[in-house]
Write a protein that binds this DNA or RNA. Structure first.
Lengths: 347, 347
DNA sequence: CTGTTAGCGCGTTCAT
DNA sequence: ATGAACGCGCTAACAG
């Protein structure tokens, strides 16, 4: 396999190298490589031959700069790619985005709020075509700033706060209420709650759903049974264990996400009680745990795909914009809500 | 929140806008924004003020083009981000790469070989600083081409084939042999094998380990007990079910990856046999399946981090290269092998 | 310390 | 059908 290089060694060939090699001007080479029809077939073939001979790859950086558009990149801002929820989201986003010839840049913040701010600024500086974010905290000013800079922003599983943007949400409230109601319909009267820190939108929304179900059943909310703040299964397991060790322990638990459900499962199995368990998010092997389990499900791939589609709409919109006088948004921002369902495992 | 814009509406401000606003030349503004000390403190402050006033963000695209270096992006080529193995790899890579100020572009190929080729070409065209890949098939010519173009390439969990590159491997052979030997030490004499398609390096390497363990025990390899080609748990479950339905079924199964282990687990549970199970890759909830399970483990985060580190070494190396006469590699390519361990669950 | 010139690789505009 | 000139936004090299 000969390594073809005409020009300076080590440097990738440029359009000019191709042009010289083919005995034409850079302009003609450019036309050929972008399939401009106004080129003589003969020269076209010569240029193509030169390009393959040199192993020419158009420099997309230069192209982006010249075209003035974005870089064909979409920034995806999440807290933890190792959480299956986020990796599926990423996959869904990427599948849509790739279909339009773009690529996804991942930004994993690991819950670091400052890091998230820097990350978004960096993505804007990189001239991404758009940003899809699941903000970690409640402060969204960095996203508002990006949007103000003209970068399309789509939020996933959290609504925009303090600015306007498209978003895809899950029916957090309804799903949590339904799951809790299911527990109550089985006779449980003391139902505990385990969830993420209060700053997380989905967590509080799901707590609201849980509380609403209790209220519907005429039950008071017992704050001693509510534990917020667990992000990882190990923390959730400890929190659940403490609930189960209460003098008057709950007979059922509702968890606001898969991390907490898994932790609660471990605690229940460890203590050997027959506490009923329900949670938000389906997860692999949930059916194989040997415990009855009620889960709130939704199409998490579709969540990502929808986010991707919403973003691509805006991206296309921006590309088409010739000279909008005031720069106002062309179409109203959308808010898509994904429905949830309940599934019963292990019974 | 006033939206500051001095120049043409809608267009983000450029360095020149900042310079004009501060009453200096573009060059001086550039110096200030890159913390070049050779600027009068007074003007420095003026320029900084102008930059914040206009909401200026340096255009990294233009910067990359000018500097001639890469774009500060690392391409990550994998087949399926939804597989926890790959999402952890991605996380490990990203954590290292981010520490050097770069970002990760994900390329999810979904087993599509042509797609992988196009993807790599696209990444090269985008002028990524390097590529980390887990190639889907056995043909690596597209990666060889990228490497020949001067883009550092690191392979993860597969060795380079047909060209030279750094790589991080798992001790596939040893891990598989140890796990199979463990099954044999418990008296099993008919051990089945479930694994990925033969084109996948890790699959065949782990098959070799399995076969070696059998040979060490003086057992022949019974090809009827070997099923390759399953990529997803559902396929693996069917393949396992067929093995268990054999007139003389295996009393134990060894699976070459987590997808196959999960499928086999389901088949065993469904048929109700007490077939012993071992597999490569640890996975969440493996301890909670209520079945004895032997797994080959390794530090999958460290795998990603190592890949990232190997790549960053090359990237730094390339940046430092002034004018190497022949463009030969500066340091020999490395091959790091991650050790494996065995873990027993559910007994 | 600051400004001018030049050009990274490409594509648009206007000639030819 | 082809080419020359110019500029996208930024910065290295050289003035002054």
């Amino acid at each position: 396999m000969p390594e073809p290089r005409d020009s300076r060694a080590g440097q990738p060939p440029t359009l000019r190298d191709v042009a010289e090699h083919a005995g034409v001007s850079a302009m003609t080479a450019s036309r050929v490589l972008r399939d401009d029809p106004r080129v003589l077939p003969a020269t076209r073939d010569r240029v193509r031959a030169a390009a393959t001979a040199l192993g020419y790859r158009p420099n997309q950086v230069a192209r982006s700069l010249r075209l003035g558009r974005g870089t064909g990149l979409v920034g995806l801002v999440v807290t933890n790619l190792a959480n299956p929820f986020y990796s599926r989201l990423a996959l869904g986003v990427d599948s849509v985005v790739v279909a339009d010839g773009l690529k996804t840049v991942i930004g994993n913040t690991g819950q670091d709020l400052d890091g998230e701010r820097d990350l978004v600024a960096d993505l804007v500086g990189r001239r991404v075509d758009g940003i899809i974010a699941v903000p970690a905290g409640s402060d969204q000013r960095h996203l508002a700033a990006a949007a103000a800079d003209g970068v399309p922003v789509v939020l996933a599983s959290r609504p925009p706060d303090g600015f306007d943007a498209d978003c895809v949400l899950v029916d957090d409230f309804g799903g949590a209420r339904d799951a809790t109601a299911r527990l109550l319909s089985r006779g449980h009267r003391r139902v505990g709650f385990l969830g993420s820190p209060p700053a997380v939108y989905t967590g509080t929304e799901r707590l609201r759903g849980y509380t609403a179900a209790l209220a519907d059943a005429g039950l008071p909310a017992d704050t001693r049974l509510v534990r917020q703040g667990q992000t990882e299964p190990a923390e959730a397991e400890r929190a659940a264990a403490r609930l189960l060790a209460l003098p008057d322990p709950p007979t059922a638990l509702f968890c606001s996400n898969n991390r907490n459900t898994i932790g609660a499962f471990r605690a229940i199995r460890a203590t050997g009680t027959d506490t009923a368990l329900a949670g938000f998010d389906d997860f692999e092997l949930a059916d194989a745990l040997g415990l009855p389990l009620t889960l709130v499900t939704y199409d998490s791939d579709e969540l990502g795909r929808t986010a991707g589609r919403l973003l691509m709409e805006r991206v296309r919109e921006r590309r088409g914009e010739g000279a909008v006088p005031d720069g106002g948004s062309v179409a109203a921002h959308q808010r898509v809500v994904m429905p949830t369902g309940l599934v019963e495992y292990g019974r």
